[in-house]
Design a protein around this nucleic acid. Sequence first.
RNA 1: CGGGGUGUAGCGCAGCCUGGUUAGCGCGCGUGCCUUGGGAGCACGAGGUCGCCAGUUCGAAUCUGGCCACCCCGACCA
Length: 570
Amino acid sequence: MRMSKLHVPTLKEDPADAEVISHRLMLRAGMIRKLTAGVYSYLPLGYRSLRKVEQIVREEMDASGAQEVFLPMVQPAELWRESGRWDYYGTELLRFKDRHERECCLGPTHEEVITDLVRRDVRSYRDLPLNLYQIQTKFRDEIRPRFGLMRGREFVMKDAYSFDATEEGAEAAYLIMRDAYERIFKRCGLQFRAVEADSGPIGGSFSHEFMVLANTGEDIVVSCDSCDYAANLEKAEIKPCSPTEKTTGSEPRKVATPSMKTIEEVSQFLGVTPSQLIKTLILRTDKGPVAVLLRGDHELNDIKVKNYLAASEIELADERLINEITGGPMGFSGPVGLSGVTILADHAIRGMESAVVGANEKDFHLIDVSPLTGFKVDAYGDFRSALAGDPCPRCQGKLVMSRGIEVGHIFKLGTKYSESMNATFLDPDGKETLMIMGCYGIGVSRTVAAAIEQNHDDDGIIFPPPLAPFSVMITTVGAKSDEIDAAAQSIYEKLWQSGFDTLLDDRNERPGVKFKDADLIGIPVRLTIGKKALAEGKVELRSRRKKETVLVEIEKAVDAVREMIENWDA
RNA sequence: CGGGGUGUAGCGCAGCCUGGUUAGCGCGCGUGCCUUGGGAGCACGAGGUCGCCAGUUCGAAUCUGGCCACCCCGACCA
């Protein structure tokens, strides 16, 4: 392809409404353009990258025995009512009516459709296992789309669904997908990590997320510095600390803490550390109000509480509810004498001998409160988020934090959908049995964005070669010259014949413009043809990643390009 | 939805507070000359419902009200 013909509207300046790096660079590099909030058009370069990811995904899915299908995007409400998600999914499901007033939605995911498809035609254990996947546009009416392709409303996703006759089969299917995902993201040239994850509203018994490690990631990855334990912060387990047997030995005392509401204010005012305080959080849930007790320096993990209570909704109580339950204002809540509310306490509370708590009265706290005897707790559990330096739940190591972008998520669904939608088969004994399902997603468009988040510099994108829209950019420099043009044309043809997607910058531009554009759009290898080197039968080769320029003989140029790409990470 | 912010040429912005006649600047775009190793230079030129609607006023990009769109922070997720 020739640059003079390719539609690559690069921008010199950053678009004002793009904040994150991948969004900025994709706009500047002429890869995407926004149509409306969270909805993007792919220009030639962007679409080429997207298709590179798709192709890798497709090859590895096929190799793992999954079969590609293509499911409808418009889906009838009846299916969603059957699974129970028409009401549960909320406003993220874009709903509308057709001309006959029939209710429909745009598919945000395809469990309903695939389950319906399979239950119609699969009747026997002989037809199982089955794994079907598709690469398709999804629509989720996100509350707040942002960050360009990182969280669009319309996005490209690969979703696979496995159906098995037995529990063992379902677990094997899960592991096969796990391996396939490892290969996919490795082939994409990304630094990533598979982490344990909460299974969220899709449900199911266990799941892993595939995180591309990048500072701009929205998720926090917790990992052990000595074993291979890794989990999403929302899931990361905390090793319970050993309970103390000691009490304060004295009665609690009430002290005045005028206008001291926050942990910092109270601890500073009383001259104690935040870890000597207990914070009492009142939560409103669909299972009734709950008080959660945490050590002052710990943070609530609402997902853990939500899972513990099997609640579907949970939020911090407002001033009014707090007052109703504790009798005191916000900022002075404490567990002593609290009643009419479930009291949950984090394990760490048991390790405290003496604590400062709110007195449930404006401007007062209690000191010298003994958690062992000072108040009643309905249940102890793991309710806080991990902190860097916490002990690993699996070994003696310590936990460290990093940021990640979730590009893949695999779930073992079990019979959640086969049960609600009655997807059954006859087992060898002729008995009607529920299929056991798994589902496996990859954010294909997000993967392109994540690759850019992870690989860029001040000059632009540094594409890992497998995802680059083109592998090589041939740049001619200097005044127009027949010799240079001929050499460029010759190498251009050879590179294509050798299987390299090659761009030839034949524009009548000054070299600076060509170099800037090549850097911006992140082409891995730049091959520059200039008068001086050409006279000696040589061309220049430059790695976008290492930024070193080497001179090679024209005859060896193709091999040198190949070597540079093959040793990309070296 | 709650909080914060922005809407003026394809992009980035100034002008608005303190209303005034042809609405500016840089980049980009077109034509010509010139130039060709890191976003050159000169000349000429095209391009604007000042987000939309209503109001105030002799007069509105500018003041007032309503609406819309987009961005950022929170709850959601590939």
